[in-house]
């Protein structure tokens, strides 16, 4: 929404500046549209640099797997993917990619998954509205997953 507003203001500013005759109304409209454009630009700058209007929300979840769940590890070293296939055939992929997105696969008697996901969420409805469709709300900052299974298959 902020981008649409920014673009509309740019167009309005152009029309007012270029086509309107000298008048008090023109001066007021220039000042208003110009100031709003600067406000939009500053808000965008602050949102991108300090995440103004957003907060970090961390959620921890534990999921118990059934004994028939199949786990496959694809790849080696620091970059690998873990695929968890449920008895119903549903597959979930977990990627280990750097310090902010880790997947640890370990042997355990009970098959289970523990995940800690930190997301950036809009602080209120107004911020959510202004930044909708931009992918900033609910943006994953970090995700740490620990999968414990008795055994898994490794595909190199």
């Amino acid at each position: 929404m902020i981008l649409i507003l920014f673009a509309i203001l740019a167009l309005a500013f152009f029309i007012i500046m270029v086509f309107m005759q000298h008048s008090k109304l023109r001066s007021i409209l220039i000042a208003v549209s110009g100031c709003l454009m600067v406000v939009c630009a500053v808000l965008l700058t602050l949102t991108m640099s300090t995440h103004l209007g957003f907060q970090k929300v961390t959620k921890t979840a534990t999921v118990a797997y059934s004994a028939e769940t199949r786990v496959t590890k694809h790849g080696q070293g620091a970059s690998y993917t873990v695929v968890v296939k449920s008895p119903s055939g549903h597959q979930t992929k977990y990627v280990n990619a750097g310090p902010d997105q880790t997947v640890i696969l370990r042997k355990g008697n009970a098959a289970m998954l523990q995940s800690t996901v930190t997301k950036r969420r809009a602080k209120n409805g107004f911020v959510k509205f202004m930044y909708m469709y931009l992918g900033l709300d609910n943006q994953v900052i970090s995700s740490h997953t620990e999968i414990s299974v008795p055994d898994w298959k490794t595909v190199k």
Binding site: A10, M17, V38, A41, S49, L134, G135
Partner: peptide, 29 residues
């Protein structure tokens, strides 16, 4: 004059948010 002052103002406000781009900046921005 009217055109160039308008244009440079738009150039200015259009460049300002770019000084805060990071790895997660939405491409649409």
């Amino acid at each position: 004059k009217r055109l160039s002052t308008t244009g440079l103002f738009l150039l200015l406000v259009g460049t300002m948010p770019l000084i805060a781009v990071d790895v997660n900046t939405p491409i649409v921005i």
